[in-house]
C-alpha cells in the first residue's frame, strides 16, 4: 500500500534521511525501530507531508504523495499519530474527536464511529466535555489514536506512542493496536521499544543513520549484538 523509495530529507545542511526505503503492504502491521536521531520521526513527517523531501518518492497505492498538502494526505487515507501525541489540550475531548472527522462528510456514520470509540474507551466518554489537557498521558495517547481512527484511515502511522507511558498502559495500547490490525487496518508503528514492536509487527525495519539497515520478521531471532550495533553504532566486545 505504501511505498517509500530512496527518500532523502535535509534540514539545512544536515541530512536526516539518506535513501530510506520501506514497504507497507495492505493489511500488514509493520514496525520501524531505531535509535534517537536515526530519522524515524523525519520519515513520518515526510509521509505526512509536513516536511519537504530532497529526493526519492512516497507512493500510496500507486499515487504519489510528493508535494501534497498535509490536509490532502489525510484525505487520501493516511492518518498520523505524531510523536508526543499532540492532542489539542485547550479543546475538549469531544472536540478533539470531532476534529479527527474533519475530512469525513457522512455525519451519521461519524456519530456511529464515535459511539464505538466511546464504548471501547469509556474514559473518553467520561471526560468528553472536559479539556483534553486534563487527561493522563496514557489517556491522551488513546485519545490521539482514537482521533486518528475516526478519519477511517487506510493506513495508520504512529510515532513513538509508548514514550513516557507506564508499562501497563503500553501493554493496553499494543493490545488495542493488535485489535485494530485484526479489524483490517494497515499499521506502521514507529517505536524505540524494540522488543515489543518486533513481537507485535509482521515485519520490522531497523532504521539507522538515515537509512534502513535491516529487516526483521516476527519470528526472527532478535540479534542483540546487531541491534546494539545499530543503536549505539559500535559492536560490543566480549
Amino acid at each position: 500500500m505504501l511505498t517509500v523509495e530512496d527518500l532523502e530529507v535535509r534540514y539545512g545542511r544536515v541530512t536526516a534521511l539518506r535513501g530510506a526505503s520501506i514497504r507497507v503492504g495492505g493489511g500488514e502491521f509493520v514496525g520501524l525501530i531505531g535509535p534517537n536521531g536515526a530519522g524515524k520521526t523525519t520519515l513520518v513527517s515526510a509521509i505526512a507531508g509536513v516536511v519537504a523531501t530532497a529526493g526519492g518518492t512516497i507512493e500510496l497505492e500507486g499515487v504519489s504523495l510528493d508535494g501534497m498538502l498535509p490536509e490532502k494526505i489525510v484525505g487520501a487515507g493516511v492518518s498520523v499519530v505524531p510523536e508526543g501525541r499532540q492532542i489539542f489540550a485547550r479543546l475538549t475531548v469531544a472536540e478533539n474527536l470531532e476534529l479527527g472527522a474533519t475530512i469525513r462528510t457522512d455525519r451519521a456514520e461519524v456519530a456511529a464511529d464515535l459511539e464505538g470509540i466511546y464504548q471501547r474507551l469509556p474514559v473518553l466518554r467520561r471526560y468528553a466535555d472536559q479539556l483534553a489537557g486534563k487527561l493522563s498521558g496514557g489517556e491522551q495517547q488513546m485519545l490521539a489514536v482514537a482521533r486518528a481512527m475516526i478519519a477511517r484511515p487506510r493506513l495508520l502511522i504512529l510515532d513513538e506512542p509508548s514514550l513516557g507511558l507506564a508499562p501497563l498502559v503500553i501493554d493496553d495500547m499494543f493490545a488495542w493496536l493488535r485489535e485494530l490490525h485484526a479489524q483490517g487496518i494497515t499499521i506502521l508503528l514507529v517505536e524505540q521499544n524494540a522488543a515489543k514492536t518486533i513481537a507485535a509487527a509482521d515485519r520490522t525495519y531497523v532504521l539507522g543513520n538515515g537509512r534502513v539497515e535491516r529487516e526483521l520478521a516476527r519470528g526472527d531471532e532478535v540479534d542483540p549484538d546487531g541491534l546494539v550495533e545499530s543503536y549505539l553504532g559500535t559492536r560490543v566486545e566480549g
Partner: peptide, 15 residues
C-alpha cells in the same frame, strides 16, 4: 481553535 493551538497538527487531521 485547533489551528491556533497547534497549526501543524491541525493540518495533520485534515484542517
Amino acid at each position: 481553535r485547533a489551528a491556533t493551538e497547534n497549526f501543524r497538527m491541525a493540518r495533520m487531521v485534515g484542517v
